[in-house]
Design a protein around this nucleic acid. Structure first.
Length: 318
DNA sequence: TCCCAGGGAGGAT
DNA sequence: ATCCTCCATGGG
């Protein structure tokens, strides 16, 4: 973190022996494929602030070694020091970074010359699927991403936090804003939210969904118990939530790994690699990915997305 | 000025 | 079922 080591800072290390397979922390975080705002990066360290078990925790991560033989240094500091924070943080990191996902089986299963997906494995080894830790935050960010750039939905999310989230101070002198509570957003009008965040026409969806949650007509935690199809049906009834946004929340928020959000990039690369450029709709692309890759559809999407963007950048530079 | 960004709603065919 | 247009906003 910043400068001198502040009082109360603690640290621990996670080694590859505790994790099922490779990890490329940098690629994982910079892929920015998740449903919560991007992490900060200072001096080569990834930094995030989250509320764990009701306590605000600021932590930094650094990976040493290779994608297969590595240690992750974790330093953290919390608003109030209680025992059990380290355990909560370890659990948090396992979820957020997908450390329990069996990547080696994924590679093994699709490691074939005939499988276009295998082309992505060499450069992206250790790339993992990030998950959110706050269902409400994940859903709202997914809605914000609609017809928007990653940079801008992140900006809107930060404005949302700054305008309506709880302000917290850390012992190292820094301060931060947590993601707001649905009850707080439910009281706003779409116009008020719009004026503070520039969310555009998505402001109405944000307020609507927040009201449903505040009135307990929608219980996000209940959706975890449903299977992909059932949870999807519920989500698609929400204003501002279509197939793509629903799949984002199903995957990154609810952790339904068979969900494969199809955006312009995925649509492009799947059409090219699997359909010879033949026209196929987005919903059919999503269905294709689910049927072909099953529980690895979300991962297939993650790898193809990154691969598509890399090759496009390369083409543009050449 | 136009086009696009991790699309979706509402309507017409 | 599939196709069309409009939708706020900001960056290129």
């Amino acid at each position: 973190m910043d400068f001198a080591r502040p009082v109360g800072m603690r640290k621990f290390t996670i080694s590859n022996s505790e994790i099922g397979g490779p990890l490329n922390l940098k690629e994982t975080i910079l892929s920015a494929q998740t449903s919560e705002p991007e992490w900060a990066m200072h001096g080569g360290l990834f930094i995030n602030v989250k509320e764990l078990d009701g306590v605000a925790v600021k932590y930094s991560l650094n990976q040493r070694g290779t994608a297969d033989n590595y240690n992750i240094d974790v330093e953290f500091i919390s608003a109030s020091s209680t025992d059990g924070i380290e355990r909560a943080l370890r659990e948090h990191l396992n979820r957020v970074l997908g450390l329990r996902d069996d990547l080696l089986s994924f590679y093994r299963e699709y490691d074939s010359e005939k499988e276009p997906l295998s082309r992505t494995f060499r450069d992206l080894r250790g790339l993992r699927l990030m998950r959110g830790t706050n269902l409400y935050e994940s859903l709202l960010c997914s809605i914000l991403s609609q017809n928007n750039s990653a940079k801008r939905w992140n900006q809107i999310a930060r404005l949302l936090m700054k305008s309506y989230g709880r302000h917290i101070r850390l012992p190292d002198g820094s301060s931060s804003y947590l993601f707001p509570d649905p009850l707080k957003i439910a009281r706003l009008t779409a116009r008020e939210l719009q004026s503070k965040t520039s969310a555009g026409y998505r402001a109405k969806s944000i307020v609507d969904v927040s009201r449903l949650i505040a009135e307990k007509e929608l219980e996000l935690a209940e959706l975890v118990k449903l299977d992909y199809e059932r949870a999807s049906e519920v989500l698609l009834q929400l204003h501002g939530v279509g197939p793509k946004v629903a799949d984002c929340f199903l995957l990154y928020g609810l952790g339904k790994l068979e969900a494969a959000p199809v955006d312009v990039w995925i649509h492009r690369i799947v059409t090219k690699l699997y359909f010879g450029g033949r026209k196929i709709s987005r919903v059919n692309t999503a269905r294709f990915l689910r049927e072909r890759f099953g529980i690895w559809a979300g991962y297939a999407q993650l790898y193809l997305f990154d691969y598509a963007r890399r090759t496009t950048v390369m083409n543009n530079e050449s």
